[in-house]
Design a binder for these strands. Structure first.
Lengths: 114, 114
DNA sequence: GATAGTAGTTACCCAAAGGAAAGTAGTTAC
DNA sequence: GTAACTACTTTCCTTTGGGTAACTACTATC
């Protein structure tokens, strides 16, 4: 890593902590990945993201909506259908997800597979 | 995001989960960032990473050592000095830290600062 | 009228993460 | 001998994350 100043390092740190605050937890990135694939309804997400409970899914969707990563669309059909989709903004996560995925794959090889 | 297959998506997901498993928690990346800056002793890290308790620091250093991100050097002086440093391998995190930092900075602006 | 599906909410519980404070064992300085 | 510094460990406690199961309110189908 190129030489950096103390101030740069501290602000890096703060940025990383902020990013992790938003993306932290077992389910947030899996949900986003599922919705990036295609918009889905509540029970469809439940079926795709295996193991998640309705309580946690509702909670995480709210968190992701607040952070503008997911959009909740309500359609006035009978009964109403509610469709969640990854926001345009969520595409800014693309690079983060890519580097994390690459690192995770490489690291698994290093620690277990060799 | 370019069109991807279901299989690619699932393996992405697994990789990301694996990466987060290693990097998860409040302190791991802050500690790595601190050591990337310069090798340090236990109490030096304590002072730089504000708010961390000795219990947590000892625990996280062990975890990071197991994952080969941090090296623990023992020097046979009197008294022994123990110096922790970021491993060469930890440089593979560079890209991850950079994208996370950039995203965190941009996201903070979006959600709070405007 | 019973069953199933929609999108959740509620209450209760457990386990892991993390914080606070004190202790330990050794060395060094005063 | 007392205080301070090293690198931790131990104990206790609280908070948070997450799981289970039941329940709600509505609609559609048999």
């Amino acid at each position: 890593m190129a030489k950096i100043t103390k101030t740069e390092c501290t602000s890096n740190l703060k940025n990383v902590i902020d990013a992790l605050y938003v993306l932290n937890g077992k389910w947030k990135l899996p949900i986003v990945l599922s919705l990036v694939d295609a918009p889905k309804r509540f029970n469809e997400i439940m079926r795709e993201v295996e193991g998640i409970s309705p309580k946690i899914l509702a909670q995480e969707l709210k968190h992701l909506e607040q952070n503008e990563l997911v959009v909740r669309n309500v359609y006035d059909t009978t009964p109403v259908s509610i469709v969640y989709e990854a926001s345009l903004y969520s595409e800014t996560l693309k690079e983060v997800l890519r580097t994390l995925s690459e690192w995770g794959a490489g690291h698994r090889k290093k620690i277990t597979g060799k």
